[in-house]
Amino acid sequence: MRPSSGLWLVLALMALWEVSARLHWVDSPNWPPLSTVVVALFHDIASGELPPLIGGTLWRMGAGLAAGSIAGVVVGLAFCLAPVTRLLLGPAVELLRPIPVPAIIPPLVLFLGLDDPMKITVVALTAFFPVLTNTMQGVAAVEAEAVQMGRTFGVGPLRRAAFIVLPATAPYALAGVRVALGLSLVVAVVAEMIAGEAGIGHYLVMMQFAGRAPEMYATIILLAVLGYALNRGFVAMERRAIHWWFALGRQADG
C-alpha cells in the first residue's frame, strides 16, 4: 500500500514534536522529545514498574465492567418483561444517569473507602447505563413471532426470557458492553486519579506532580494503546460470539 497523505501528516507532526524539543523551539521541561517518551515507555515496562499498575487498573476495570454489564442486562430485561419494575424504579435510574461520574466518587469514598471496592463500584455504575439502554432496545426489537411461537409451544415466561428473548437481545447488549468497555477504562483511570494510591491513573498524576514529563506522556500513550487493543479484542470476540447475527448481515450500533 502506498503511504497516504494522512500518514505523512502524522509522521510530519511526530517529526515536528521531536525537532521542536531537540532544537529547543519549545523550550520547556514539559516538552520532551518523542524519542525520550518512547524510551521512557519501554524502560518503565521493562523495569517492571508499569506492568503491575496496568494489571491493577485492568482488574478493577474488568470487575466493574462485568458487574455493571450483568446488572444492565438483568435490569433491562426486567424493565421490558415486567413493566411494573420499570414503573417503580425507572425514575430512580433516570435521576442517577445524568450525574457526571467523577462527582459520585467523593460520596462513594465515604462508604467504600479509597481502594478496590469503591473503584469497581464506580466503573460498574458507568458500565450499567449503556448496557441497560441497549438491552432495552434489543428486547424491543425481538420479533413478536418468536415470542408468540414460544407461547404456542407452552414455554413458560422465565424460560422464554432466558432462551428466546435473551439470545435475540445479545447483539444489542454486546454493542452496549462495547461502549461500556471504552468508558470503563477511562473511568477506572479517573477514579485512580482522584482517590487512592493505586493504578495507572495515580501514577499519571504523580508523574505530573513530580515533573517527570516523559513518563507522563508514556503513560498516556500506553493508555491509548490499551484502549485501542481492548476495543479491537472485544470486537473480535463479539464477532465469534454472535457470528449468526453478522451472518444475517445485520448491524446493532444502536
Binding site: N30, V186, V225
Partner: peptide, 24 residues
C-alpha cells in the same frame, strides 16, 4: 485521506488522561 490517520491516532487517547499535561 489527510486527516483520517491522525483522527484514528488521537481518538483512543482517554481525554481525561490529558488533563495532567494540559495543566502543565
Amino acid at each position: 485521506r489527510l486527516f483520517e490517520p491522525l483522527v484514528e491516532l488521537i481518538r483512543p487517547i482517554p481525554k481525561s488522561a490529558l488533563v495532567p499535561p494540559l495543566m502543565l
